[in-house]
Amino acid sequence: MTSYEQWISFYTIVRKDVVRMLRIWPQTFLPAIVTSALYFLVFGAFMGSRIGTIEGVPYIMFIVPGLVMMQAVMNSYTNVAFVMFQSKFFNRNIDEILVSPTPPWVLIAGFVAGGVLRGVVTALLVLLVALVFTPLAIFNGFIIALFLILASVIFALGGLTNGVFAKSMDAINIVPTFVLQPLVYLGGVFYSAKTLPGIWGEVTMIDPIFYLVNGFRYGFIGKSDVSVWLAIGVLCALAALLFAVVLYLLRTGLGLRQ
């Protein structure tokens, strides 16, 4: 395929996903708005007034980046995992792309771009909700955008791997509940890792969401538990690793071709 044709194919995959997301917006975009409004209300407004400040910022401002990141991660992941699983398992319409000359990397890029759009748009919606509860500090807009996109890319790739491997719907639900949720809650969304006692501080260090939340939070409040450059390095490496895994899976047809 020429690069123009590859672009058309990429655009088609993304467009189709966006049409789907908008058609079922009460399932795609609404839940994040409702849950995060509840979080802001309960943890931010009610409890935040008791907790006071963390690292010198009001508690609600401390948790906003974490909650936004949580939604970006969850939504980009489940979007791609679900769409991939559905199209390979229920409708089998992944064959539409598999018979075509669209190369595997364009397929991956298209699915991931769909997940990234879902993650980023959801994050922006949650930020809007946050504005109802607190004025937002912005320290560095570029860092904010960079971490938001990195998060969505990594978890969209993760979701794609999950979707390609999954043999049943359970396998799609297990990972978000038993892997992503713990990673999110232990990744410093609600607290500073510095405040954790003993071993827990080190456990946190191997959690990719810890780097995402900290880098993202740095973009807002200018403070982070780790160096932002270290965070960017770790996350880029993770993204590259996941891309290689997914590309290998698709090239060999594992999971998609018999």
Binding site: E5, I8, S9, I13, R15, K16, E96, S100, P101, T102
Partner: peptide, 14 residues
């Protein structure tokens, strides 16, 4: 109509 047009897209047809 989308199903048919999208299939063209996968072949690089605008």
């Amino acid at each position: 109509i989308d199903i048919v047009v999208n299939q063209g897209g996968y072949y690089g047809i605008p």
